[in-house]
């Protein structure tokens, strides 16, 4: 009961924190792409997911904005990097890359009580 009450209160308090004003069509499309390519199977997002590859909740800041994100994803070699943990080449269109970048920007603007501790995620 108390849990339900707290949950209800949380859900009502979310508009202050969850950056929903920036939740555009493009961001929603970015989230679908994020899911349909299972990025969470290697990465964490706000600390949840897999621990194989860098945290992406703050990747927007770490990579210096959307251009950095797009450049990184685009430049993954098809056969990986010998000996190094590799990220697949997803062959996204420019429009898709834009959507993913905007999605990661939106996530980076969620109020996470100052987590992660530093830029390294």
């Amino acid at each position: 009961m108390l849990f339900l009450a707290l949950s209800f209160d949380s859900v009502s308090a979310l508009p202050e924190r969850d950056n929903r004003q920036n939740l555009t069509e493009t961001v929603a499309q970015g989230k679908i792409l994020w899911e349909e390519n299972n990025c969470i199977g290697c990465h964490t997002l706000l600390g949840e997911g897999a621990y194989f590859a860098p945290e992406l909740g703050n990747a927007y800041h770490r990579l210096g904005g959307e251009a950095g994100i797009i450049g990184f994803i685009k430049s993954r070699p098809k056969d990986g990097i010998p000996g190094r943990r590799s990220m697949p080449q997803f062959n996204f269109s420019d429009e898709e890359l834009q959507a993913i970048a905007e999605f990661l920007k939106y996530v980076s603007e969620i109020n996470t009580a100052n987590w992660p501790p530093n830029i390294q995620g």
């Binding site: 209160d9 949380s10 308090a13 979310l14 924190r17 969850d18 950056n19 706000l46 600390g47 949840e48 969620i110 109020n111 996470t112 009580a113 987590w115 992660p116």
Partner: peptide, 8 residues
């Protein structure tokens, strides 16, 4: 699990 994901 609700410390750092945007919840109060």
């Amino acid at each position: 699990h609700y410390y750092w994901i945007g919840t109060p």
